[in-house]
Amino acid sequence: MLKVDHVDKSYNNNGFFKSSSRKILEDVSFECSQGECLGIIGESGSGKSTLGRLLIGIERPERGSIMINGESIFKRKNRKSKISVVFQDYRSSINPFFTVEDAILEPLRAINIEENLAVIIDKLLIQVGLSPSYKHKYPHELSGGEAQRVCIARAISTEPSYILFDEAISSLDVSIQLQILDLLKELKNSYKMGYIFITHDIQAATYICDRLLIFKDGRVQETIPTKDLHLVESPYAKKLLKNLILF
């Protein structure tokens, strides 16, 4: 279980003579339990990417804490094999010098799993819908959807407590988006992992998430279960729903 507790974050603009600080996140608190899928919805500039960086523990907030199963995620060993992430930019998510195999092995090696690696990799690749022959390919030889599948295989390899998806499907074609969403649904059923889905695309979020968190200007506007989405109260959430291009 992930618990975010009263988190504040601001950045300093260090000028030569004066330094000013800009508040990005203000008093953000929420929880995500094991096996739940939480969607964080916001526009660009709302601070949701900053929140993403805090949630994977690579940046620290000024105030507040983020705990996983009662332990702070800002300690490296607490993150190991518990948190994973899939990013938006599939072109830079995999080290260009690594083959698909090296990339998937990385988190396994980090927790000292050395046995049956070949079998594990084949199994993971099949699970994300790729043929095992992909393991000798380099990232630049993969299409966007394939690269994102490899990233998902890498993320689920250690069966973490939760995976963060930072706009993970936004730069894919719509038909590929659906494939990836279906894959994620399927994986969630078999692994019981928690998902945190950061996105601006509310339609895709409702497809997979159990609960939605509407985020604006670094604050949580509203948290609502997906099935009650039509009952949103905050004016911003209403505007968000009104401004959609539907099919």
Partner: peptide, 14 residues
């Protein structure tokens, strides 16, 4: 700034 470096930091590599 590359995302695979961020990933490596996330999974707790030294």
């Amino acid at each position: 700034e590359m995302e695979y470096v961020k990933y490596a930091r996330t999974i707790g590599l030294s």
